[in-house]
Each structure stands twice: as C-alpha cells, then as structure tokens.
C-alpha cells in the first residue's frame, strides 16, 4: 500500500484568460485564478492536486466525482469552478477531521464497502449527504434509490448499503450521547 498523495503537487499553470474565484474548500478559504470554462472537477484534480475526487465519465453519469457544494451532493464534472464563488465545497479529503476517519469512512472500512476504491469517494460523499438530509427516507429502499447516482462496477453495493446504515446508527448514537452529555 502506498500513500501517493506526495505525487500530486499543486502545479499547473492555468490558461489565459482567467478569472479569480474565491470559495471555501474543505473549510479552508481558497482564492485562485481559473479559466472561465474550467470545470470544478478538473480544477480539484489538476490545479489543486486533490485527486480524491474521481473522474469516471466526465458527464454526470457515474457519480465518482460527487462533492458537497453547500452541503448538497453534486457532480463536480458538471459544474464550472467559476460558479462556486462564495460557496462551501467539500471533497473526500475534507471528510476526515484531525486525522480521524468520519463515521462513514469507518463503516466503509469495517463493512468492506469497496473493492477497487475508485467510486468510493463519490459513494461516501453521497452517503454523508443523504445521512444529513431528513427528506430522504432511512429504509434500505430509500437509501438505494438515493444512492443510485453512484455506480460501483465492482458491485460492492450490498456492503455500501450496510455501511451507510451502520454509519447512520453510529451517528445517531453519537448524537444521542452528545445530547446526553449536554443534559444535566
């Protein structure tokens, strides 16, 4: 196993003309010059060196590039970077906090909810968004429907569903224990 993140420095020169865009990326302010037609996914991967967000189709057909924009799961391949002005963008790199895996990441590991791992960041970004969205039902059928924009060709769907439901339980427990702590 290798940590290959060192191979992904910030480097690429953007083409002229450019425009400046400011947004919050994984809780850090970012200000950068991008081409007017630069796509968020390419900016993340090639300009910012954040390779966790994957490209599987480049046309909103596979879900591998799913990120959160203002908390909503979106396909980064169909979004201009310039449209993100003032927004909060979260990628898989922003999912874990202070070195600790997010409960969804933990449950994906525990449930073996991936194989090749290429669709996995997108799966987890969709999963975290749906767990935060009270409008989406919590039963298996609702989760499967809501997750259907994330294709896993390895076919780890069963384990992904298990992992999501397990993370739901963990998050509920965490919330309950926090509430318990706050209650005298």
């Amino acid at each position: 196993m290798m940590d290959d993140s060192v191979h992904s420095p910030t480097r690429r020169e953007p083409p002229a003309p450019t425009l400046n865009v400011n947004f919050t990326l994984n809780q850090q302010p970012v200000s950068l010059d991008v081409a007017p037609n630069a796509v968020l996914l390419d900016v993340l991967r090639e300009q910012l060196g954040l390779g966790g967000t994957k490209k599987g189709c480049d046309h909103g057909q596979c879900g591998a590039c799913t990120v959160h924009v203002d908390g909503q799961a979106m396909n980064a391949c169909l979004r201009l970077a310039a449209m993100c002005e003032g927004q909060h963008v979260t990628t898989v790199e922003g999912l874990s906090r202070e070195g600790e895996l997010h409960p969804v990441q933990q449950s994906f590991l525990a449930c073996d909810a991936f194989q090749c791992g290429y669709c996995t960041p997108g799966q987890m970004m969709s999963a975290t968004a749906l767990l935060n969205d009270p409008r989406i039902g919590s039963d298996d059928a609702a989760v499967k429907e809501a997750m259907s924009g994330n294709i896993c060709r390895c076919g780890a769907y069963k384990n992904i569903l298990t992992a999501i439901q397990q993370a739901r339980a963990t998050l509920a427990d965490d919330a309950a224990s926090q509430a318990g702590e706050e209650t005298p």
């Binding site: 196993m1 290798m2 290959d4 993140s5 480097r11 060196g49 490209k55 590991l109 525990a110 791992g117």
Partner: peptide
Amino acid sequence: TPRIDGEFKLTGRAGYTGELSIEGM
C-alpha cells in the same frame, strides 16, 4: 481482516494513475 490499503482509498490519498503528476508534465 480490514483492507490495509483501505484508509488510503477512503481518504483520497490512494494515487490512481490519472491523478498522478510530475513536474513539467
């Protein structure tokens, strides 16, 4: 046995060929 490469894949640190970068590339 949980995958030993799992954490790299789950945090985006696993470098698949398409996201590797070399100076002057």
